[in-house]
Computed example of a mutant assay.
Amino acid sequence: MSINYRISICIVITVLITQLSGCAGQQTRTKSSVVDYLYPKESNIVVQPSIPTLNIPIKVGIAFVPEQSPRSRGINLWSGVVGGGALTEANKTDLLNKVADNFRVHDFVSDIEVIPSAYLTAGGGFANLEQIKTMYGIDLIALVSYDQVQFTDEGLLSLTYWTLVGAYFVSGEKNDTSTMLDTAVYDIQSKSLLFRAPGTSNVKGRSTPINLSEELRRDSIKSFEDATTNMISNLTVQLEKFKDKIKKNPEQVKVVHAEGYTGGGAMGPFETTIMILLAGVLYCSRRMKI
């Protein structure tokens, strides 16, 4: 075996090892932040929350805050940049509707508006919320943010990728998608945070290198959906805690009921029925005495 042939073999092996090691441990992160949206670093405005006044029934808006640019690390030799991509507007609307349904069941909510992401500007802060309040006539807004990390690693099966058949049919890519969603409910007028609820999810999957991006997109959406389900459960708990907080500390939140409102703190249907029955019994007893 000639020296030149041996050198050529060594170069090929080195290139293959480099490519294999370069494809391992690829990560993509997409996120948005309520803090960055409401309190941008470049703003000199000092936000001073005041005691919120809740006019019951209230009108609520719900929206995703603007996301930051996705950050990727690593290139897959077969499918390019790793990552399932950020949520589309259609995905956001579907998830927000699920969260909105959780608010609609409460009688103290008169209406809830799903607000398109285009109406929220990056770093817009409370000035942007005031615009949305005027546009939609809302009192509160539920701001949804997220942080999703997708990590792809190659198992031993990835060694078969160097045959065309292996690249198409061998699921050597191990995918891990972790998601955290967070809903923060603010009273726009007072700039006060009322309550918040997180939701988490972790999805594990496998894929071939050829359909890696497609599988990651599917894992991304599933992880968002699972995190939304978890967050809705936590929202129910946090909402009940907030109602208890109002009862125990009325000085922290002022509640004003609209004229004719019969839900929440006033008499509900059950209490109204009992009062009617009691009135009927009282009337009959008086008639019997006569």
Score class of each variant (00 low, 15 high):
residue 188 I to M: 07
residue 165 V to M: 10
residue 218 R to W: 03
residue 44 N to W: 07
residue 223 S to Y: 05
residue 183 T to C: 13
residue 158 S to D: 12
residue 56 I to D: 03
residue 107 D to N: 15
residue 2 S to R: 07
residue 137 G to M: 04
residue 280 G to A: 11
residue 228 T to S: 13
residue 242 F to V: 06
residue 21 S to Y: 13
residue 69 S to I: 13
residue 68 Q to R: 15
residue 216 L to N: 13
residue 114 V to F: 08
residue 66 P to V: 08
residue 254 K to F: 05
residue 99 V to K: 02
residue 168 Y to G: 09
residue 102 N to D: 13
residue 105 V to A: 08
residue 32 S to W: 01
residue 235 L to G: 12
residue 248 K to A: 15
residue 19 Q to C: 12
residue 179 T to Y: 02
residue 271 E to P: 00
residue 206 R to L: 12
residue 279 A to D: 07
residue 87 L to I: 05
residue 122 A to L: 08
residue 199 G to S: 06
residue 243 K to H: 07
residue 257 H to M: 13
residue 174 K to W: 01
residue 252 Q to K: 14
residue 163 T to W: 11
residue 224 F to C: 05
residue 26 Q to R: 15
residue 222 K to L: 13
residue 57 P to M: 05
residue 270 F to D: 11
residue 53 T to W: 01
residue 63 A to F: 07
residue 188 I to C: 05
residue 67 E to H: 15
residue 52 P to K: 06
residue 231 M to N: 11
residue 20 L to C: 00
residue 182 D to N: 15
residue 143 L to Q: 04
residue 231 M to D: 07
residue 267 M to F: 14
residue 44 N to D: 09
residue 158 S to C: 11
residue 210 I to W: 06
residue 60 V to F: 11
residue 14 T to R: 00
residue 86 A to V: 12
residue 29 R to V: 14
residue 52 P to Y: 03
residue 52 P to F: 05
residue 245 K to A: 10
residue 46 V to P: 00
residue 111 D to L: 00
residue 12 V to Y: 05
residue 92 K to W: 05
residue 61 G to E: 11
residue 167 A to D: 02
residue 227 A to H: 05
residue 154 E to A: 03
residue 164 L to V: 14
residue 246 I to N: 06
residue 13 I to C: 14
residue 88 T to S: 15
residue 52 P to S: 02
residue 140 L to I: 08
residue 186 Y to P: 07
residue 96 L to Q: 08
residue 224 F to Q: 10
residue 267 M to I: 04
residue 227 A to V: 04
residue 162 W to E: 13
residue 227 A to C: 04
residue 41 K to A: 15
residue 195 F to M: 03
residue 206 R to T: 14
residue 284 C to D: 04
residue 226 D to C: 00
residue 218 R to Q: 12
residue 145 S to I: 01
residue 150 Q to R: 03
residue 235 L to N: 14
residue 258 A to I: 00
residue 212 L to M: 14
residue 179 T to V: 07
residue 238 Q to R: 12
residue 176 D to R: 09
residue 92 K to Q: 15
residue 275 M to C: 08
residue 24 A to T: 12
residue 19 Q to N: 09
residue 255 V to S: 01
residue 132 I to S: 10
residue 223 S to F: 02
residue 115 I to F: 06
residue 76 N to V: 00
residue 255 V to K: 00
residue 249 N to V: 01
residue 200 T to L: 09
residue 198 P to W: 04
residue 83 G to W: 03
residue 85 G to T: 05
residue 285 S to D: 10
residue 170 V to C: 01
residue 205 G to V: 00
residue 87 L to Q: 06
residue 18 T to K: 01
residue 246 I to L: 02
residue 98 K to G: 14
residue 156 L to H: 08
residue 228 T to E: 06
residue 210 I to R: 07
residue 249 N to A: 06
residue 54 L to S: 04
residue 176 D to P: 00
residue 251 E to P: 06
residue 137 G to K: 14
residue 198 P to E: 04
residue 205 G to F: 01
residue 74 G to V: 01
residue 31 K to W: 11
residue 6 R to G: 10
residue 162 W to T: 00
residue 56 I to T: 02
residue 93 T to S: 14
residue 61 G to M: 09
